[in-house]
Amino acid sequence: MSETNLTAAQAPVVASGRSEPTIGLWGWVILAVAFAYAGYAMRWDWLLDWYPQLIRGLGTTMLLLATTVFLGMLLAIPIGLVQVFGPRWLSIPARAFCTVIRGTPLLLQLWLLYYGLGSLFPQFPAIRDSFLWPYLRQAWPYAVLSLTLSYAAYEGEVFRGAFAGVPKGQLEAARSFGMSPWHSFRRIWFPQAFHRALPTLAGETILQLKATPLVATITVMDIYSVAAQVRQQTYLTYEPLLVISVVYIIVAMGLLKLFATLTNTRYMRAPN
């Protein structure tokens, strides 16, 4: 009797809405024509020389994305949380952080960290002599830091709304049954807030992917900076850009699929 044997009629089904749009016959025809033209009229021989670097660049991009999304999320959760129920000395700095980071261009933050902080550090012998120096003299820590802060600021705002949106009564019920604050957070509050945040997180993560080329300006060799190199050395204008455009589209579609799988929960219509 306790088995999970729902009949089809009992199984809760969330209307999935529209089915995925397909590009249709004409879409395929247009795509085929475009590819045929590109293959005929453009130069692709450089790919043979450059594909190892392109793949390494894609690796850097993906690593950068995964690291900063993960770290940014870890930061965003407390930033969102303290704005909902934290004391003022925590919630005000959290709100200020979100406002400043979201109100300034990412490129500016990146440069301020890399050129500002990065040129300040060598003046302190303590830092120069520390075990961190071999890393701090490279560009990628600044790329990771600024992308993480940016993601944390946007997602902190998303999590603030998500945490606030969980019905208070359910948290009260948790309290009334003797759950500790941590237990209630881990089992009741966070799971629901996370699922509320997921659809927004999907979009934000794709924006984060498309923000990664900025790190090329501080010499991090992501896939965009490889393409820029190709352009400089082969004098080809469009081909490298077209190739990485296709790569970005494929990655973005993969991310959407991933989030769609995560978002597919059955309880999403909240009862109260």
Binding site: G169, Q170, F177, Y267, P271
Partner: peptide
């Protein structure tokens, strides 16, 4: 004592006006 009140709360089950079942379970 947080520990005491939690223990005591498990002896006092509450049923709410708005049910407050945990909607993700």
């Amino acid at each position: 004592s947080n520990a005491q009140i939690r223990r005591i709360r498990t002896k006092l089950a509450m049923v709410f006006q708005s049910f407050n079942l945990w909607s993700h379970m």
